Computed example of a mutant assay.
Amino acid sequence: MSEESVEHRPLVISDPQVMRALAHPARVEIMDHLNSTDSAITATECAEIVGLSPSATSYHLRELARFGLVEQAPSRGDARERLWRSKARSFGVEAGPDSSQEARAAQETLIEVYAARDYQRIREWARRLGDESKEWYDATTYGGSVLMLTAEELTTLNEAVRELMRPYRRSDRTRPPEGARAVVVHYAAMPMD
């Protein structure tokens, strides 16, 4: 598979083993980087991003490959260099009401890893908020709403939000405008009791 043909459809994960393999903070960061840049990187390059040693990162990449989430990419010319890339641009987890208790538990664990990471990002943003330029301070938002929706309306809302974000999903091959920064968008929509 050439680098240009990396799948852009979401990979649906329903296997509890795969969910558990992904439910590690370093693996979540590795997948986020590979999916957001659409690039191939070495374990050493990845180590700089996730803050681990190259050998630890290499282990995590091999585990992600074992579960079909990443794959080796063609070399950049140095045959000794091992490059890795994501097998899909994004993924979703599916362990619904008809899934096994094991699958639902694995999904819950994976969601907790993501929620902890997202909360940490929000805390880091709050700590540096006063250091941002007025332009970025004014452009940033944090908030939430409680809406009264049917399941059909929630599905429509989710699709609309994904469609709004689509043009801004840029890979290494799509040059962002001058002044662009990496911006994390947290979005969650779920029924409350």
Rank of each mutant, 00 (worst) to 15 (best):
E45F: 07
E3N: 09
R85C: 13
E132V: 00
G51I: 03
L61V: 01
E94G: 02
Q101I: 00
L22Y: 03
A95L: 14
A160P: 00
V18H: 05
S2M: 11
R181P: 00
A188V: 11
G144K: 09
S75A: 12
M192F: 08
I49H: 03
E159P: 02
D32I: 01
L22W: 08
Q72P: 01
D172R: 09
F67L: 01
R169L: 14
P74C: 11
L61H: 00
A79N: 10
R170D: 01
A189W: 05
I111W: 15
L110E: 08
D172L: 08
D38H: 06
R123T: 09
D138W: 09
N35Q: 12
G144I: 12
L157P: 06
T155I: 06
S100L: 13
A23R: 06
R127Y: 06
A115L: 14
R128A: 04
A160M: 15
N158D: 15
R82A: 04
E45A: 12
E7A: 09
I30E: 02
I49F: 05
E45N: 05
S5F: 15
D98C: 03
S133F: 00
T150R: 15
W84M: 00
S99H: 13
H33W: 01
R20S: 10
W84E: 02
L157V: 11
A189S: 15
H60F: 05
M165E: 08
H24S: 07
I122R: 08
E94T: 08
V161A: 14
L154Q: 15
T155R: 05
R89T: 05
G179T: 00
Y59D: 00
H33E: 01
W84N: 01
T150G: 08
R170M: 03
R80W: 13
Y168F: 14
Q17R: 06
P16K: 11
S58P: 05
T44E: 08
T150Y: 09
A151M: 05
S75G: 13
A139Q: 12
L110R: 05
A189K: 12
G143C: 02
M190L: 06
V185Y: 02
E7C: 06
A79P: 12
M1A: 15
R85Y: 11
K87I: 13
I122M: 08
H186E: 01
E45W: 10
Q17M: 10
S58H: 15
P191I: 09
G92F: 13
A43H: 05
Y142C: 13
V28N: 06
E135Q: 09
Q107R: 13
V113W: 00
E152Q: 12
L69A: 02
V93D: 06
T141V: 08
T37I: 04
T109A: 14
E135W: 07
E163H: 02
V185K: 00
A79F: 05
T57L: 07
P177R: 12
S99Y: 15
H33N: 04
K87Y: 03
K134R: 08
Y187E: 01
A47F: 03
S171A: 13
G51S: 11
R170G: 00
R80M: 06
A88K: 10
T150K: 09
E94K: 15
P167T: 06
R127D: 09
M192W: 09
G130D: 07
H33Q: 01
E153T: 10
I122T: 15
E81I: 02
E112A: 11
E3S: 09
K87M: 10
N35P: 00
S39G: 13
M1K: 10
D78K: 13
P177K: 05
F91E: 04
E94S: 07
Y59P: 01
R162Y: 01
A47Q: 03
A26G: 12
